[in-house]
């Protein structure tokens, strides 16, 4: 609970960006109140190694986003509009709730592919054309995410 309150307090300082004592005191009080109200829910346990791996994954995701954005812009600006939308079902081998969330979010974040439905570790993805759906089916992204979560306890 103390960690949660401190995280909230840091966020408060970031948002208010003023160091008058009345603001800081108010922020401290309210962070403790909110942390206390939430103390019955999920415990706030920082996992530094996991977060480090996720942060290292972001640049690669970014490269993918730029690549498919350019692909998508080309599709839109082409006078013939050569799109071929399709729904594909992807059954992933991920064993964690958080991993599936990260996978679905990454798919949605790259333009041209959107996660339409999730059931356990099966995702229905809507893709703009064959190239993009091949990209999802090539399991490149999935294996990277599996790599991030390889040391965690499976919970799915």
């Amino acid at each position: 609970m103390f960690l949660k309150a401190m995280a909230l307090f840091l966020f408060w300082i970031l948002l208010s960006a003023s160091f008058e004592w009345i603001h800081l005191l108010l922020g401290l009080v309210f962070s403790f109140v909110v942390a206390w109200l939430n103390s019955g829910h999920s415990p706030f346990v920082p996992k530094f190694r996991l977060w480090l791996r996720i942060i290292l994954y972001i640049p690669w995701l970014f490269y993918k986003i730029i690549e498919s954005s350019i692909h998508m812009s080309r599709l839109i600006l082409d006078p013939a509009l050569p799109i071929n939308p399709q729904l594909i079902t992807v059954e992933s081998k991920l064993r964690h709730h958080a991993a599936v969330v990260l996978f679905g979010n990454s798919i949605t974040l790259t333009p041209g592919t959107i996660t339409a439905e999730v059931y356990r570790n099966t995702l229905i993805v809507h893709a703009m054309d064959k190239d993009l759906s091949k990209d999802i089916e090539s399991k490149q992204m999935e294996s990277r995410i599996a790599e991030i979560f390889k040391d965690e306890k499976p919970d799915l």
Partner: peptide, 11 residues
């Protein structure tokens, strides 16, 4: 169309 919108958000 939502793909086009996601282009706005991401880049």
């Amino acid at each position: 169309r939502s793909h086009a919108v996601s282009l706005t958000d991401s880049l």
